[in-house]
Design a protein around this nucleic acid. Structure first.
Lengths: 251, 251
DNA sequence: CGTTCTTATTTGTCCGTATAAATGGATTAA
DNA sequence: TTAATCCATTTATACGGACAAATAAGAACG
């Protein structure tokens, strides 16, 4: 019969949430103030506590209030904060290599961080690392994409023996083998002259423009457990990132 | 007296949520299957529906299930999808310049995108832009940080007349003057040889390593309305970004 | 004046119940 | 066979009540 006009009848708690949002936006409750208590809202809207709490949960999800036992609902913002978010499902997505690339291990072994290396890795000098050096390629004929130095804690040196070693990101391999999870990560991108040590392998001249990307992986208790340094010749790598405007980043 | 041993007694619904998470992770309920109904869980855990629903809300928030009326709780993942998020409150934070820097406008005027420029900006050739060229500095004595080309739609050319022109990001000025909001943004970073056109102004040699950052700002309907291209000599700029592991991105 | 204790307030957790709305499958009708 | 209808199931919404835990403010104490 009818074309389902979508009456869009709001549920009671959504309605209350909307009204409260409006009041907050219009300044009735400034930041730092308290919203009326659940009991007061129950009386004001002639509704049950359940309904009021559902409404307040919405405001909480939007980041407008925080609720604390014994205190009340504190206004922390008058507008849902607009964020630009860049989120990835894994850090390997973050590293925008396609799955077509792989690493050819050149050599590996232990190394002690001297002054310069410590500065690059942001670790204390004298720290002992296990270093894996490899060349990142699309295929064995094309010019390599870049030179990769992977520094991992010595206790994780076993990752080089994994069958998927050259394919999967090392921090994921460490997670699988040792249960070490990445809680925090940091990236730096800068330009420098191509170091002579990599120039020949990358088929460019030493001193030519090079893009260097440093990624630091931290576990629990902010323990730095892996650092990768990749160096790309001109024209072989572009870092790109998209950001979306969003009120609430979602999975 | 006691050192507050933090008994950490889990609330009933959190306990149930944890148990269900474990069962899901161990494969008792594969992706696509249904979790037991609320009624079944009430019976199984000898608890109320309220408590069961609170537990299921947690799983929902973690992205493990979706719940649908008349159907049930569908498993959509066996592990909480781990996200790494990088969120900023504004795009000017994204551009990691300190507030101490400013732009010195060198010249501005209209320009039509030729083939090369269109490729760089990712717009159609022949598109008309208003170009503002400037030098980014910390102070007038130190070597400049970089060269900035700002391409805006011709209708936004008026931004150069703003009093805060050299200080605030242009896309923010456009937002204030014209109400154009940024819904989506994109960034690319690559290395190239320093173009001769900027070399002298930046006090480096043409052909020396240069870091180029292209930022594209899109409004509603995916309309590209501003592109900035900044070119930095070696050692004067490092792009850095932090990412947090988070189940649910928060403000 | 400062400290400890008490108390009222407020949200967190949990229980019971009822009705509405959406879904999928079975049933019926064309 | 196909389309429409009915129905049991399931979650969404909403009501009622109770006690626990955290907080702030006042009271009592030194």
């Amino acid at each position: 019969m009818s074309d389902k006009p979508r009456e869009r009848k709001l549920s009671r708690y959504r309605d209350i949430a909307t009204r409260l949002q409006k009041e907050i936006r219009l300044g009735k409750y400034p930041v730092g103030d308290l919203l009326p208590t659940e009991t007061e809202l129950m009386a004001h809207y002639s509704t049950s506590r359940q309904t009021v709490r559902e409404a307040l949960r919405i405001l909480m999800d939007q980041g407008l209030i925080v609720r604390r036992v014994g205190l009340g609902s504190v206004i922390i913002a008058t507008e849902p904060p607009v964020l630009f978010t860049h989120s990835v499902k894994s850090l390997s997505e973050w590293l925008r290599y396609s799955n077509e690339t792989y690493r050819d291990v050149v050599r590996s072994g232990e190394i002690v961080a001297d002054r310069d290396l410590a500065a690059l890795l942001k670790c204390e000098p004298g720290k002992q690392w296990f270093l894996i050096e490899s060349i990142r390629r699309v295929d064995q004929f094309a010019a390599p994409l870049g030179w990769t130095e992977i520094y991992v804690l010595r206790k994780f040196a076993g990752v080089v023996k994994r069958s998927d070693h050259g394919r999967a990101p090392v921090h994921e391999q460490i997670a699988k083998m040792f249960g070490q999870t990445t809680e925090y990560a940091q990236m730096e991108i800068f330009v420098r002259k191509m170091p002579a040590a990599f120039a020949k392998a990358l088929q460019v001249e030493a001193g030519s423009p090079a893009l260097t990307v440093v990624r630091r992986y931290y576990g629990l208790k902010e323990e730095l457990f892996e650092v990768t340094v990749t160096t790309h010749p001109e024209g072989r790598y572009t870092y790109s990132m998209d950001m979306q405007r969003s009120l609430r980043p979602r999975v």
